[in-house]
């Protein structure tokens, strides 16, 4: 059986200042194998974050179910860790303090907290910066601390919501390669939301394309590019093919969005 089983998932939000409900995600079925890297793409507002937060146990499910290793998700758990879109680092803690935060919350018993934190900080290449505070780091460095904090608790599943969203294209590419290197070593299952088509292909074993109104899965595309990967695959024919396919999907979604705006 797959590690993550999402069945007929539906999530409704209450609309502000009214009793109406708004369906953010509906009829989502998805299974993810252990160790698989799954990227999720789709136009803004199609429910990517909502889906991810549901797997994290941070929003209530309206319909359907999510199981991880056969256990129903009904809240956050030590088997999952989230890397949020904004680097949500506590400003009064140093890099090391921030990486320790998750360990402290989970009452980590696997040895010395400081040592564990330092190990993770080194893994993301910030060994020299462990005593810095977040405001002394660049955006990219902050995101690496974010990732180190999530990796430190040794989760089965890593949930990442546009972790490189705020970075420039170049740093983003470097971070992507870096992430793959870490992931290939740690062999975690990963769900990764992104807006960037190249990033989605480059990282993925499998791409989930979502559509809107309500958020649903349009297509799941397998990516059979060989691993380990580096930037050279960006120019391969297989990559071009996938890129074209994804572009077409997203363009379709954009035009329907414009239509909605014109009607409204």
């Amino acid at each position: 059986m797959a590690q993550i089983e999402i069945r007929d998932l539906g999530i409704d939000y209450r609309k502000p200042k009214s009793n109406e409900v708004f369906s953010a995600v509906d009829s989502v079925d998805l299974s993810v194998e252990k160790g698989e890297f799954v990227t999720i793409v789709g136009s803004s507002g199609c429910g990517k974050s909502t889906l991810l937060m549901a797997v994290a146990g941070l929003v209530d499910l309206t319909r359907g179910s999510i199981e991880i290793d056969g256990k129903r998700v009904d809240g956050p758990g030590p088997d999952r860790a989230v890397v949020f879109q904004e680097a949500s680092l506590l400003p009064w803690r140093s890099v090391r303090g921030n990486v320790k935060f998750g360990l402290e919350m989970q009452r980590w018993s696997g040895g010395d907290l400081n040592e564990r934190a330092m190990q993770m900080i080194r893994l993301v290449g910030l060994g020299r910066f462990s005593d810095y505070h977040p405001h002394q780091l660049s955006g990219g460095m902050r995101q690496r601390v974010n990732i180190a904090r999530a990796l430190a608790v040794d989760p089965e599943v890593l949930l990442m919501d546009e972790p490189f969203g705020a970075l420039d294209a170049q740093t983003r590419e470097i971070m992507g390669t870096e992430l793959l290197r870490i992931w290939e070593r740690a062999k975690k299952t990963a769900l990764f939301v992104t807006h960037d088509i190249d990033e989605a292909i480059f990282l993925a074993d499998k791409i989930v394309v979502m559509g809107r109104n309500p958020g649903h899965i349009k297509e799941v595309i397998k990516v059979d590019l060989p691993r380990p990967r580096n930037e050279s695959i960006l120019d391969s024919d297989a990559f071009h093919e996938l890129r074209k396919r994804l572009r077409a999907h997203l363009a379709e979604d954009m035009s329907s969005m414009q239509l909605v705006q014109e009607v409204a």
């Binding site: 941070l58 956050p76 999952r80 860790a81 989230v82 949020f84 949500s88 506590l90 919350m105």
Partner: peptide
């Protein structure tokens, strides 16, 4: 966003 982050680690 800090509260949500803390909750995600089971705080």
């Amino acid at each position: 966003k800090f509260l949500r982050m803390a909750r995600s680690f089971g705080a």
